[in-house]
Design a protein around this nucleic acid. Structure first.
Ligand SMILES: [Zn+2]
Ligand SMILES: [Zn+2]
Ligand SMILES: [Zn+2]
Ligand SMILES: [Zn+2]
Lengths: 160, 160
DNA sequence: CTTGACCTGTTATGATATTACATACATAGA
DNA sequence: TCTATGTATGTAATATCATAACAGGTCAAG
């Protein structure tokens, strides 16, 4: 994960999203999974901004575009994307964000700006090592872990 | 936080809960806050087991005991306890757990057993340091962070 | 004994998520 | 090609989690 700050830095986001989408297609193909229209569209919607969207926000977008407008339509597509590693669920927000570099095996930490609501992925392996070690002291085996930080992004810090 | 494994180890839980409750009284007194009957009862309920309870589970318990039976009754008491550091919210579970050593300033990690649903607190400062450092690389200022691990507790590992 | 802060209760509503079932589509044998 | 099978989508209904808004009660300071 070479760009922990990608989301916060000025960048060619159209290219950023296009690239993520292309990688996503590759990932699903390699996994023998189907990137259907709803799923692709949901991923595109999530990729529009480096923010997290609630399932119902996604659903509203889908509905006006002629897809189903009942919750399972959105939840199922989102679940698929999360399972394939193409999107992440942000627990604190009950919301979902596109993965900015699908294909790489990763379990990032999330940096959530409380002001502009941008969400970035950050390297979490060091933190996970500490956590796993601490858990091991208690005899606990960590299978998955959630690491999310709430605070101020560089842009919003400047304005405060 | 000397006992990361307290919840999983065999222990005199009646004493454990009584002690936490006594500390809680001290904490609120010191803070000039009021430990009212509803609040105390909610804390007692959370202290019955080292598990997390949803707000509506707590509410149901309160209702049969003659307290109000509308959601705000439970949510307000829980919010109070969390604000005072006497309980913690577990994001992954949308649920609350009593703090096992109130009074000590701490922001623990949580170890959640996916089988028996026990929840333990673990030392998280090392993980937090890593996270804060990684965030700093992106210019992000961490204000609060959530660290939760899902896995198998020592007891449930043994049975698997 | 009044005032103001805070606590509790209630109604109503909003937000998030899942179950169950029906229909449509893709693909792999027969 | 035809049909069987698994998978995906659509819909209705419901479950679960959370908050806004307001009314009335409690308590201690002044
Ligand atoms: Zn971008
Ligand atoms: Zn920001
Ligand atoms: Zn105990
Ligand atoms: Zn267990």
């Amino acid at each position: 994960m070479p760009d922990p700050d990608l989301a916060f830095a000025a960048h060619d986001h159209a290219h950023c999203a296009q690239d993520a989408l292309a990688r996503a297609e590759a990932v699903t193909a390699a996994a023998g999974a189907r990137m259907t229209p709803v799923r692709r569209r949901v991923l595109e919607i999530l990729l529009e901004e480096h923010k997290a969207l609630g399932a119902y926000d996604v659903l509203a977008r889908l509905a006006v575009e002629g897809f189903g407008n009942q919750p399972p339509v959105a939840y199922r597509a989102l679940e698929f994307l999360v399972d394939q590693g193409l999107a992440h669920r942000i627990q604190r927000l009950n919301a979902f964000t596109a993965c900015v570099h699908p294909g790489k095996d990763h379990a990032p930490a999330f940096l959530i700006c409380r002001t502009c609501h941008m969400v970035a992925e950050a390297e979490a392996s060091a933190a996970r090592v500490s956590l796993d070690a601490e858990a091991a002291k208690a005899g606990f085996l960590v299978e998955r872990s959630t690491i999310e930080a709430l605070g101020l992004c560089p842009n919003c810090r400047g304005q405060a």
